[in-house]
Design a protein around this nucleic acid. Sequence first.
RNA 1: GGCGCGAUAGCUCAGCCGGUUAGAGCGUGCGAUUCAUAAUCGCAAGGUCGGGAGUUCAAGUCUCCCUCGCGCUACCA
Length: 715
Amino acid sequence: MKKRYLVTAALPYANGPLHIGHLAGAYLPADIYVRYLRLMGKDVVFVCGSDEHGAAITVKARKEGTTPRAIVDKYHTMLKDTFEKIGIAFDIYHRTSEPIHHQTSQDFFRKLYEKQEFIEETTEQYYDESVGQFLADRYIVGTCPICANPDAYGDQCEKCGSTLSPTDLISPRSMLSGSVPVKRPTKHWFLRLDQHEQWLREWINTGQADGKQLHDPAAWKNHVLGQCNSWLDQGLQPRAMTRDLEWGVAVPPEIPGAEGKKLYVWLDAPIGYISATKQWALDNGRDWEPYWKSDDTALIHFIGKDNIVFHCLIFPAILKAHGEFILPVNVPANQFLNLEGRKLSTSKNWAVWVHEYCEEFKGQEDVLRYNMIKKMPEQSDSEFTWKGFQETNNNELVNNLANFVNRVLVLSHKYYNGIVPAINPDLTFKSGWEPDKTGQYDEELHLLHRKLEELGAEIVRFDFREALGTLMEISSAGNALLQFNEPWKTEKENPEMVKVVMNLALQYVAVISVAARPFLPFAAEKLRAMLNLNPLQDRGDLLDILNELVEGNPVIQPNHALGQAQHLFGRIPDEVIQKQIDKLTAAEQANQAQNIQPSPSKYAPLKETIQFDDFAKMDIRTGTILTAEKVEKSKKLLQLSVDMGFETRTILSGIAEHFTPEEVVGKQVIVLANLAPRVMMGTESQGMILFAEDAEGKLGFVSPTGGWPNGMGVK
RNA sequence: GGCGCGAUAGCUCAGCCGGUUAGAGCGUGCGAUUCAUAAUCGCAAGGUCGGGAGUUCAAGUCUCCCUCGCGCUACCA
């Protein structure tokens, strides 16, 4: 058992609001886990913060005519506020723009630099000559090769969601000036991931590093191990840890060549966990180091599946390279949550925004939490629907849980004036756990104890949906307890037995008031008030009641005066749900309307002026495609043999997604004939076929009209 | 294309190292009940476990092939 826990939740990027996918993916599971640990009296620190650097933020600032600082301030405030409203109980919600973070990351970089963990490498990057700077991936736009969106970014197409690299883009242009960027060499520091491959492989698969057993790989999720091994098997490559950026943590200035270089987000962001912990320690008069450097600390990262390799391979490599830090004991990554059958999309506004939910469903924060937990994408992608949201609320939260609490309190007030009855524990009754089972007070308390242990075990193994189900079983058993014993009938003939039943039912409610806190913190608090019990302190409250129950002791005492009953959850009517569905439909329509509008950048900007000599260098000829076949293992390439008149050439062309081999055979084409040969997918391509391309990226054949011989020049 | 993860009742999902009639919650049907936000409790119906082949005395559970979804990743001169 570890002495202390450091729990992190992925740093959200400060360029947009929070949606339910984020919540279900990382923040809620982390919150449940942490709240449970606190209830068990564990030493735990829960850190998070806004990730505020990178080109996407500068891009957004430019678009909105403001500064990166203004953007991150806006979204940081918004995110922080949203987390608070939905009840994510961070110990600190920090931000990577704070000086303490810049210092921490620079120190880290220095250390790795001194330990010669980096190699310096010069690569070709796009450069905008008119403004004299290198272009971050986000600063390059062009036509998406997958969906033909003319405004795809260099790192990602927001229309089809494909991950891209700047060189993927068809007709790239600089976002700064609109000019065509050129490639230029630039020097960067690369982390020698290849040198870490061996120990990472062992650590991931056996849990051992440096001869120590650090974790149990069987406790890691399948898809996490699978993804890691997939990377390991492909061989790890050195990875750039710096970028040519303007908005970020500067490479320590004393390092030669540091000017203009910033730390890459994957060094910057995870170190944010460390700087957040430092700030928390400062704020609370504590020492941060044991949480990051002591073997008896369990470090756990909650993330979404898109972040797996960074948290399981790259960041551990960084931590190990530094030398003083511990490695994560688990990275329980969740898969993705879909909305009404479709992927969530920020740019398409296909999402449920948490801040909007908090406004429109005031006081119903727990309803969203409950739904998110129920639909948590723990093992595979899952699905949120508004209809399901409504059903879950009405059937489970209202009918089962809230109703149980209500009937217990109403009956207690009716029969005992709201005073917990003293009882004779030897009297038997009908147990609520199964039909025809005889119940006995002490034994029933032991059963409750067992249920709570079960619930805890489920949380600890990140089985949150199951744990939520276990919580609800207590409520169901409570309902059955009342149903089987029918106090409303038996109160007259057997009041002593009814006292036992009602006392026990109150124990159930009291137990729920504690056990529900990780899942439904607001409802738990409300319950405490209804029972007139002290608010929970997060210092072992659950451990305390476990200790009582295992002894057969009640957790709410006889003669205790209860508070007033109130409805824990309210029904959600159809209109409210319809409104939300309409909202999504509207977003969808707005989206379609936008797609129909012609793009302002329908025509690619003119390239720079060239001289006749430049043109004359090109040898362009006519040719006819003789044969065509798909290149094996390639999605885009066709291998063509082209009759050039004087010879037949093999040419590879990236048109497989536009034409079938049968379609192109026999077509006469224009060939750039003196282009340097290039080997692709193991075959040498001896030239390039020219096509016309429209704004959508569609290709059209270009050829002379009517029986022209092959091998003739084009000028 | 490669690799990884997934495909199980109407819906949302569990099913560990292969072993008796494949499970849960919700929904549906029938019955009971009325303290409670027309809530609750019981019983029941519902699946050739994505498709195909194979290994085995025995396969959602192992192997191979295929289809679909998601993620990561390569090729576009």
